[in-house]
Design a protein around this nucleic acid. Structure first.
Lengths: 239, 239
DNA sequence: ACCGCTTGATGATATAGATCAAAGCCGTCG
DNA sequence: CGACGGCTTTGATCTATATCATCAAGCGGT
């Protein structure tokens, strides 16, 4: 189904996929390196071209993914095709952690994406034997829930300008945490993606960018945006 | 701060607060009764009058609550007073599980509320010693996250009629799971609460109820609503 | 029975954002 | 090179929902 290209694989704690291991560890700092060899968890490296699906809503949830490269959009569709993007995943993020029989949303690659793929069953067993990892994962899920609640406020009670500003500020901060402060923050997703994330139309997003540009609040450059007036941006995105 | 009335308390596994224990167990069915006495967790019984606050956003998060009676609204406020209700809690639900230093939202009683109050520190330690309980809690949080994602779709992409219908269907189902199928589903929260949950105004909620009433889709009675045309309701609330 | 207060329903009007339409801007492919 | 197709921007309307204003009903207190 998915046009993914799987290459390389390793067992957690048995070298080979150093990158997977490092990423895995970064989430689960409670586990020391010497603890890992106790268990075998098959990790596959999966690569995805732009627009390729990692998985789709209602498919059997076979696997858990840990992103290592690229940006993934997570979304739900209504029967008539209306789309709500519920989040963008960046390297380090986990996907498909719900541990339900089927995925609750679809995930596809915005740009070129690499991820570590862990079989759900195997991962669940590993988890049973590693309460520290479960604790870390619970904290992660709890954080996701808190972000989801912020997004509810945004979708329910903020106007277009506030929505766009809040999105830009949050995205800029996440990007900075990942790559260090950059002057220009890239926006790899399309305007349609941003619109579907913010509960707006593409036209409203475009106009709002333009207005913020004319205001000298931001500067739109070909490969992203620059925040010129952080004060005003923070004010629009406040609380 | 809170006008709560604390009465009675018990230690988990040392009789007294049978109700707390039963509720606690219902969440954590993986723990057998004979496992409980191993640990002491102080549980206080807290009662709240209608409109009383259980806790407020940004307060130090001292405690975890497990609702035993009544309905609680959970909400976030923007600096200018706009409110988004992020959920309604019913008996059995946990509040303040985020385990952050401060509460991420406010919670107050819609009607008369009773809850079991567990000190956060103590609960966290208990959790460390009980991986099964942590697992249950992780499943619970994961379910909450999934509901939050559904709510994002509702807020971002559904119109007023769909929002109201979806709310009624979901509320009816939750109520039924708790009390068994009832002809009339009570709506203990105000129209303003419903509006702030659905990202609408009180007037739009009121008009939408009226229209669904004129349609014979629902029947509005003094103490709640009756669904007359489940087909149409399900269609409006679909996916 | 009357008052003051709150909540909900409904009508009139305003507006933010949606929808519809067209035109610019690249990248790419023949 | 030029034509094509996907995005994005911009402009002109339209409309769903917000806003504002009444009004009626319920309710507790006197």
């Amino acid at each position: 189904m998915s046009p993914a290209q799987l290459n390389g694989s390793c067992r957690l704690g048995k070298e080979v996929c150093i990158d997977c291991k490092v990423r895995f560890m970064s989430i689960c700092s409670a586990l020391e390196a010497h603890e890992l060899p106790e268990f075998d968890v098959l990790i596959q490296r999966a690569n995805f071209a732009p627009r390729a699906a990692l998985f789709a809503q209602d498919q059997p949830a076979d696997a858990v993914y840990n992103l290592t490269e690229g940006v993934v959009r997570l979304y739900k569709l209504l029967p008539d095709g209306r789309r709500q993007i519920i989040g963008f995943a960046l390297p380090g993020d986990f996907l498909g952690l719900a541990m339900a029989e089927r995925y609750g949303f679809s995930a596809d690659a915005v740009d070129t994406v690499s991820a570590c793929r862990l079989a759900r069953e195997e991962f669940a067993h590993y988890l049973d034997a590693k309460p520290h990892l479960l604790r870390r994962l619970h904290e992660y899920t709890t954080h996701e829930l808190s972000l989801a609640q912020d997004q509810m406020v945004l979708l329910g009670r903020r106007n277009a300008e506030e929505k766009v500003a809040t999105f830009l500020v949050n995205w800029r901060d996440r990007w900075a945490r990942l790559t260090g402060k950059a002057v220009t923050v890239p926006l790899p997703m399309s305007r349609q993606d941003i619109a579907d994330f913010l509960g707006l139309t593409i036209e409203t997003v475009s106009r709002t960018f333009s207005r913020l540009g004319k205001d000298k609040t931001i500067l739109i450059v070909p490969d992203g945006i620059r925040v010129l007036d952080p004060q005003r941006m923070e004010r629009l995105a406040a609380a």
